[in-house]
Write a protein that binds this DNA or RNA. Structure first.
Ligand code: MN
Ligand code: MN
Ligand code: ZN
Ligand code: ZN
Lengths: 143, 143
DNA sequence: TTATAATTGAAAACTATTATCAATAAGGAC
DNA sequence: GTCCTTATTGATAATAGTTTTCAATTATAA
């Protein structure tokens, strides 16, 4: 289970397993939509009542260092986090419910070399995100 | 000239042409790299000494409403602005000097329909940004 | 069980952005 | 040009989000 594996990795890196960290990891490791620190705090507090918002920030920072989560930029905020994808993947995000899914298999090398040549840049990295509506939200809207 | 055209558009929408607005427009309309409010403020102050940071925020807000500028998300900040592209274009950004250029002609319909089918989403929008090094920075690094 | 040091939450500090407000000045009427 | 109206201004205060500080707590190894 992801939660346990993340806790093991924290431990393996010398971090102690505290109630605050367990509660935060439990939320972030299993979320299907990107969450900001306040959203994590509110969700995790129902598991561990004594949790402080500061510990959420601190734990997110560590999870990001360990590359277990990644920051996601959205139209209405740029500090939301999601479990990190394996390898090079891109995001597909539902504008209705916020559900985020990764996809891979973009093949944009041709585009990149065309643009690189035309503009005289050498390209190192790219961001690609798709926004749309998931089937569940589609149904909810039409039903 | 872009600066004049932007000022005309502000005027056409009933906004008065003030020193503060002129100074901000002059900077933002001619920049080649995305600037955040503080950067605009500092650059524009050399034109109009009395400028207040608040007026930069207010002017940027209006320019965005008039679709003369657009917000750009970067790895180290999400509140930078650039003159808006004509039609649907994407960004190519230099990691060295911040120079931003637009490009068009991505053809990603095949990718979109593949992803849409596989994930059961209907796709409405996409973000694509390329990061790299421009020829000038390349030279500076090697020379 | 005990000792140690990492971790905690509360509070204070900081930063970026927005709202308030009296003074100013742009632009239309004359 | 002068006058009038009111949009706009910059200073200031307020707010929101995030980080730092710090004494108390607690996870962990001895
Ligand atoms: Mn890719
Ligand atoms: Mn496109
Ligand atoms: Zn949805
Ligand atoms: Zn460059």
């Amino acid at each position: 289970m992801t939660t346990q594996s993340w806790l093991s990795q924290l431990k393996a890196h010398g971090y102690r397993l505290t109630n605050a960290r367990k509660a935060v990891v439990e939320i972030v490791a299993t979320t299907t939509s990107a969450l900001n620190p306040l959203q994590v705090y509110e969700a995790a507090k129902s598991t561990y009542q004594g949790l402080g918002l500061v510990s959420v920030y601190r734990t997110l920072e560590k999870l990001e260092e360990l590359e277990l989560i990644q920051r996601v930029h959205l139209p209405d905020g740029c500090n939301a986090y999601l479990p990190q994808a394996d390898g090079h993947q891109h995001l597909l995000i539902c504008e209705g419910c916020g559900k985020a899914e990764y996809f891979e298999g973009d093949n944009m090398e041709a585009l990149f070399s065309k643009v690189a040549g035309k503009h005289g840049f050498s390209i190192h990295e790219h961001w690609l995100q798709l926004f749309g509506v998931c089937s569940q939200c589609e149904l909810a809207a039409s039903g």
